[in-house]
Design a protein around this nucleic acid. Sequence first.
DNA 1: GAGTGGTCTAGACCACTGT
DNA 2: CAGTGGTCTAGACCACTCC
Lengths: 277, 277
Amino acid sequence: MDSQQQTRTVVHKLAKQYERIADDLRAKIRAGEHLPGDRIPTEDALKTHYKVSAPTIRHAVGVLEAEGLVQRQHGRGTFVRKPRAKVQRTAERYQWEKDRVKLSDEERRTTGATERDTGRDMSALEFYAAYDSVFANADLAAVFDVSEGTKLLHRVYRTRLKTEDAPLSLIDSYIVHDVAARNPDLLLADNEPWPGGTQHQLYTIGIELDHIREELTARPPTVDEAQQLELSAGTAVIALRKISVATTGDVVEVSDVVLPGDRTVAVYTTQLTRWDD
Amino acid sequence: MDSQQQTRTVVHKLAKQYERIADDLRAKIRAGEHLPGDRIPTEDALKTHYKVSAPTIRHAVGVLEAEGLVQRQHGRGTFVRKPRAKVQRTAERYQWEKDRVKLSDEERRTTGATERDTGRDMSALEFYAAYDSVFANADLAAVFDVSEGTKLLHRVYRTRLKTEDAPLSLIDSYIVHDVAARNPDLLLADNEPWPGGTQHQLYTIGIELDHIREELTARPPTVDEAQQLELSAGTAVIALRKISVATTGDVVEVSDVVLPGDRTVAVYTTQLTRWDD
DNA sequence: GAGTGGTCTAGACCACTGT
DNA sequence: CAGTGGTCTAGACCACTCC
């Protein structure tokens, strides 16, 4: 009653050597023979042990690295990867942010949504923002329902824990330029971090959000993303597109967010209505 | 006004050869010199072109494959990867499923949540289900708030488009065994696919769901997952934990869902309450 | 059978880490 | 400077695809 799905870890006899070795090492790690954080035997030792050439060992270890099971460090050794501490990113942040829009400037200034999610206060976080203008490509034009080439305000955000080098996320946010320009303050990166966040920014130009739609996919990082987020081989990213829709039905802001998969948990709660018994 | 973020594709002079070659090929693909679906030059041709040995070319192409940009096919060539058609998975499925619980058996039999998401009808989908029992590990025990070792009903689901070999998702679902046993029909895989889905199953034992929490991360697939979902190198999966909470506050069902990142978009909509102006 | 990618060897030399 | 991983060569042979 349980067989079909389990018998997959078949021992491929006469399998390729690197597979055999990778399987063996993987099993040893799973069995706890090498614990997270531990260094596994050197390539030289493995070479002797398995009686194969150096490139074959490298290939085998490379497979485990691509799986995210181990991490090679030049000059130091190869280590069993520890699960990274996860940072939550909840969708409740949006309602929370909306509720704060009507608070006083002072109250808004105290905390932002990222602090709320990470549980850190503002002093532990460092913000970076840069603004420029771009012209809508076909993709963005379709989402905003404007014609291709429409001028958009493009805002780039990086948020970083002061204790770490790599940012927590890479965010590219877009707003139709003419809409944002209704409040000239919104065109200047100098005003970031804006107390109250994007929803308050939109409020200053008379926009109230009705709902936010988020579309998530997973993929390997691009070279740029891997560098910026300091991701090693064997990790993936969550690519999230956030679409903010105003009470008028217009799409007013679109953000492309890239989150490191090994340290982020995106959380969504779907509240269900009661049956009326 | 746009420089900081763009200047990252620096040409590393004297870079490693495989990096230089990978960069060059990547640029050519980006520039449209090789279109999605096209075959790129053979390794032999590249070897001659770049004047390096075979393993170096293989390494360079391997980098692009890990990025998901190309896909190697033994005996055929190396091809620029086409974006896969995406299947949406919306959280609205849960309210939809709940609304259907009280419909007649006949009405429920017509469609399930997966058909709704994929836009296919039941005849195009093939279901597989297997049940067994497991004892709660620390992780599951914590989520269910029961003691470690508690007996759980473990249900494995695979749903597949009949026109394809690979399933759309891998699902491992858990329910506390004693709870499920209140309706003996729920212990038999033969009753799957159950008209109305899990929420109707729970309804037969007097359980109404209050909300569903979903936690998403991204990571490279395990070897098993890659085989089952037929994922090639350079893809990631969305690992989703779905936690169903009853109106009593109890966690009644937990599912671990693995979705292929290159073909799945998970969609969540956060409805915001209006400001009362 | 020709074309193309996959595995493997044996060994040279380079580059980073830590003592 | 010793230890360890990273890059690269030159070439042999295997395995899959397609004509």
